[in-house]
């Protein structure tokens, strides 16, 4: 399927914005760029690699995301964990039915999620959580002595045990 490259998935949501909605989006995106709290919950979920929103002429909102999973589950998860921020993000669009009850929201998601015709990811086998674990392990590994360093086996073993203890949840 062209929307995914192994584990990595692409979504395009393209929706018309209601009159006056553009002003709301400019304010919302300005706030999100400057106040970390607005997007913090997205980061905690750890299933979006990268996403972005674009405001097009003629009141069109274009959203692209690179993430793990399928689009309905993706939107549903955010509806449950950050409902008010989801309402802030989608209510100014034409036809948005609110997230509850979920059936209408699921249908709205399906109706507005457009096919990606061709998609590629540089790390298609790694979920977002996997990338996070790997980056933390790399950070810790860079504090280990270099393999070429003049170090005794006992000194290295001590550093290794500390490394394993520090990263055991990520290994």
């Amino acid at each position: 399927m062209s929307d995914s490259h192994r584990q990595a998935t692409a979504v395009n949501i393209v929706v018309r914005i209601r009159p006056l909605g553009v002003a709301w989006y400019r304010l919302l995106f300005f706030a999100a760029r400057h106040v970390a709290w607005v997007t913090a919950a997205m980061g905690r979920q750890q299933f979006i690699h990268h996403c972005h929103w674009m405001l097009l002429p003629k009141r069109v909102l274009w959203f692209e995301s690179n993430y793990d999973g399928d689009v309905v589950r993706y939107m549903d998860t955010f509806a449950r964990i950050m409902p008010w921020r989801m309402r802030a993000a989608w209510t100014p669009t034409v036809g948005f039915p609110d997230m509850f009850p979920p059936a209408g929201f699921h249908q709205w998601t399906i109706d507005n999620a457009y096919e990606t015709t061709s998609y590629w990811s540089a790390y298609p086998d790694a979920t977002t959580r996997h990338v996070g674990r790997a980056l933390r392990v790399l950070d810790a590994a860079e504090r280990l002595p270099s393999p070429d360093a003049d170090i005794t086996p006992e000194e290295f073993a001590t550093a290794w045990r500390r490394f394993v203890a520090d990263t055991q949840l990520d290994l």
Partner: peptide, 13 residues
């Protein structure tokens, strides 16, 4: 080019 109004990355690397 269409510029992003907002970008988000879980990991900045």
């Amino acid at each position: 080019r269409v510029h992003s109004a907002l970008e988000f990355a879980t990991w900045d690397a």
